[in-house]
Write a protein that binds this DNA or RNA. Structure first.
Lengths: 229, 229
DNA sequence: AAGAATCCTTGACTTGTATCAAAAATTCCG
DNA sequence: CGGAATTTTTGATACAAGTCAAGGATTCTT
C-alpha cells in the first residue's frame, strides 16, 4: 500500500496533496497490466473510470468507417487517459490500446467522483491537466488544417527535439506508421517526405533515429513557409 | 447587483451553486461590451482572465503566417471562452473576436483562482465544461483528418439540424466564409460542394437558409461514405 | 436609396497527397 | 538463428481541394 501512495504522489496532478488524500486515492484505485496490443477501452463504451499510466505507452485513436486510424494522442507514463467521460458523463469518445506493455492505475468513476465531492481541492489541479490537453488539441487542430504534411512533420520534430535533449539526434519511440497517423497522413507520404528532407540536407534518417542537420530549415517549414521541393 | 447574480446563475457551470457563492462570483466579475469585429484577446497575449458570453457571438481562431484563418469554435451566449490559460497558466493559445455585438462577463484570473481555492466545489462543475470541450475537439480532429470536405459539411449540417428544430430548414447564423473556416476549408470549395449537393437533390440553398431534402444521403456522407459525384 | 464594402459564386489551372501495388528492410518469436 | 509478420520504401496514377481571377450578389453604412 505504501508504494502505491508513493507512486501516486509522483503524478503532477496529485503532487503536493496531503498524505491523507493520497491515501484515499490509493484506496480507490486499482493496478492493472495490459500487454502490448491489448485494448484498454473503446469508443462508445460506457465509461467506468479513467487511467493513469505508470509505465509503458497507450495510444488513443479514432477509426473511420474504412478502418483508417487517426491517433489523437500517445500517453506516456505520468499521464492521464480516459478522463473526459468521467467528468462530462457519457461514453468514451475514442479507443485506447497499449502500444507496449503497460501498467496503469484505474480509478473507478463512481468512487472517484465521490472522493472529488468530499475533497474538491483535487479538482483544481485536474483543471490544469484538462486545460493543458485542450491547448494541445488546439495546436493539433491548427496543424491539421493550416499546414501541409512537411510543416506538420517539421513542427513535430521540433517538439520532440525540445523534449529529449540528446544533442540533435532524436529517437522515435513509436513506429513511423504511428507517427504518420499522429500527423494525419499515411506511411507512404511520411516516408517520401522524410526522404525529401534527407536529400535536402535538413535531416538524416537511420531507422528510428533522426538527426537534425539544419534546424533553421526545419523551423521555416514548421512556420508554414512552402519550402520543400 | 441582483440582476448580475441572476445572470450568473443561468450559466450551466454555475447553476446550482448556493447564493453565497453566486454573490462572490458576481463580486469579482466585470461586465464588458464589444461591438462587432472588436478583438477580445489575441494569441500569445498574457491571460488576464476568462469570459462568459451573455449575448452575441465570439469566434476563437488561429491564423497561419499567410493570414489564413482556422476557426476553432464559435461561442454563443451561455458559453465560456479563454479559460485554458487561466487554469493551465501561460498565454491565450488563440485569438478571439466578436462576430456580432457581444456582452460578456470577464473574470480576472487572480481573483477567480483565489475564489476557486476558497470554494473548490466550483472546480468540479468546471471540470465538466472542460471535458465537454475536449470531446468537441476530439470530434473536430477526427473530422478534419478522417473525412473529406463533403463529409465534414454533412456532419455539420446534421449537427445544426439537431440543435434548432425548424422543420428541416435551418438558418446559418454565421457567414459561409466562417463556416468554411470552421470546416477547415475555403469559401470557394464550400460553395462548390453546396452547389453539388443541391444539384443532387440533397439540399436546397437560398442565402443563409438551407433546407435538407434527403437526410439519409446526408447521413451517408457524414458517415464517411465517398458518395458525392 | 446609393455607394461601398463584403461575401459568394464560377471557371481554368496547379498541386499535394491518397491509392494501389509490389519490393526491400526491420522486427518479432519460436 | 531463421522464417514469419510487420514495417518501410519506391513507383505510377488519380483526384480532391487549393490558388488565382473576375463577375455577381448581398449586406452594411451614411
Amino acid at each position: 500500500m505504501k508504494s502505491l501512495v508513493e507512486e501516486i504522489s509522483k503524478f503532477p496532478f496529485f503532487k503536493g496533496l496531503p498524505d491523507e488524500q493520497l491515501g484515499e486515492l490509493a484506496r480507490i484505485c486499482i493496478e492493472q497490466d495490459y500487454e502490448k496490443g491489448r485494448e484498454i477501452f473503446s469508443e462508445g463504451e460506457a465509461a467506468k473510470g479513467f487511467y493513469l499510466v505508470v509505465s509503458g505507452k497507450i495510444k488513443v485513436y479514432k477509426l473511420s468507417l474504412e478502418g483508417k486510424e487517426q491517433i489523437l494522442h500517445i500517453f506516456d507514463s505520468g499521464e492521464m487517459a480516459g478522463e473526459v467521460p468521467v467528468f462530462a458523463g457519457g461514453n468514451y469518445p475514442a479507443n485506447a490500446r497499449a502500444i507496449e506493455a503497460v501498467r496503469v492505475l484505474f480509478f473507478p468513476r463512481v468512487s472517484f467522483m465521490e472522493l472529488l465531492n468530499r475533497t474538491p481541492s483535487i479538482a483544481v489541479s485536474l483543471l490544469a491537466v484538462l486545460s493543458q490537453r485542450l491547448r494541445f488539441f488546439t495546436h493539433m487542430i491548427e496543424d491539421l488544417s493550416l499546414k501541409e504534411v512537411p510543416g506538420r512533420l517539421a513542427a513535430h520534430l521540433i517538439y520532440l527535439g525540445a523534449r529529449s535533449r540528446h544533442g540533435n539526434t532524436l529517437e522515435l519511440d513509436i513506429t513511423k506508421t504511428q507517427l504518420a497517423s499522429l500527423l494525419g497522413t499515411i506511411p507512404e507520404t511520411l516516408s517520401r517526405i522524410l526522404a525529401r528532407m534527407a536529400q535536402q540536407g535538413i535531416i538524416t534518417v537511420q531507422g528510428k533515429k533522426i538527426r537534425v542537420l539544419d534546424r533553421e530549415a526545419l523551423e521555416a517549414l514548421a512556420a508554414g513557409g512552402k519550402g520543400l521541393i
